[in-house]
Amino acid sequence: MYQSIVMTGLGGQGIITLANLISEYASENGLKVSLFNAKGMAQRGGRVTSEIRLSNDPELDFGARISAGKADILIGMEIGETINSLSFLKEGGAVILLNYAYIPTTMVLKKEPYPSFEQLTELYSGKTKELFAVKEPKHPYNMFLLGVFTAVAPAIDAGLSFYSKQSVEEGIAKKLKRGLEENLQTFNGGYAYGQSLLQHV
């Protein structure tokens, strides 16, 4: 098994926490893991991208970065940045799309149209059938998405079935001390949402 996962969005959305949780959990399950966070401008509302590569073969060599057309799974946390990341996804790869837009000041002032969630899902559906549209997310988004991911990951690839609800919950409890109850609640909400999406795929 060999997986490349890309997450994309904006600084402040908790992408790096999400990427850390997903990759540390894979590492604890004996996988060879590489995580790259491109976060140069994270604190200033800029684009953040996390690249996770997983393998269950410890001898398999791979670099940290994911090239165009090589991502098996793409998790998009902000509409605009997810559109910018389309070329990451391989043909037929799985994509989890979050309905959240942050419109830059200049576009608000000039009343320029910002791409909609419908445009985003339409764009991606041209590249893959394995599309999970998270239309009604709850805050904090990263925990909600972790729930969705945990629910759909085993369906995407049997090699990812170690992401089980109970085990990830335990992982969250170990890593997050602040606001644990709220985070777990959101995670569970995301998990249920993910399960409902699976039924529609």
């Binding site: 890309v6 994309t8 904006l10 401008m41 200033r44 509302g45 800029g46 684009r47 991208t49 970065r65 994911i66 090239s67 165009a68 057309g69 090589k70 605009g80 940045e81 559109i83 910018n84 990341s85 389309l86 070329s87 990451f88 942050y102 830059p104 000041t105 200049t106 576009m107 910002y114 791409p115 445009q119 764009l123 041209g126």
Partner: peptide, 23 residues
């Protein structure tokens, strides 16, 4: 890497593309 083929192979993505200027 996300931008590499966006112009050539993904015209729709290029058209919808937005930038978040850092502030």
């Amino acid at each position: 890497p996300g931008n590499e083929e966006s112009a050539a192979e993904q015209p729709v993505a290029a058209e919808l593309s937005v930038k978040h200027p850092i502030t």
